[in-house]
Amino acid sequence: MKARVFVTLKPSVFDPQGRTVAEALHTLGYDAVEGVRQGKYFELDVRAGTPGEARALAAEVADKLLANPVIESYRIEVGEV
């Protein structure tokens, strides 16, 4: 089973990389892109009986390692592929 973990900086935390990407897009003329937040994407292949089990495992490893709760939050999607 696949668990996809999306880690992003919390909205209250300044993201210098996202800001720079946004500025580059503005330079290219994409003024309609009003903001960019850069994050990390993890695709986990997990051994789990149910989607719920896969989600719980993904949340556990996100809390422990993948995300730093001081500055980041995360979102999980679970699927067969």
Binding site: D15, Q17, I71
Partner: peptide, 17 residues
Amino acid sequence: LLEAGMLPGAMLRNRGL
């Protein structure tokens, strides 16, 4: 030490990158 929680806070990328 920050990641270990032995000191509070976290490091972000330098503001000038």
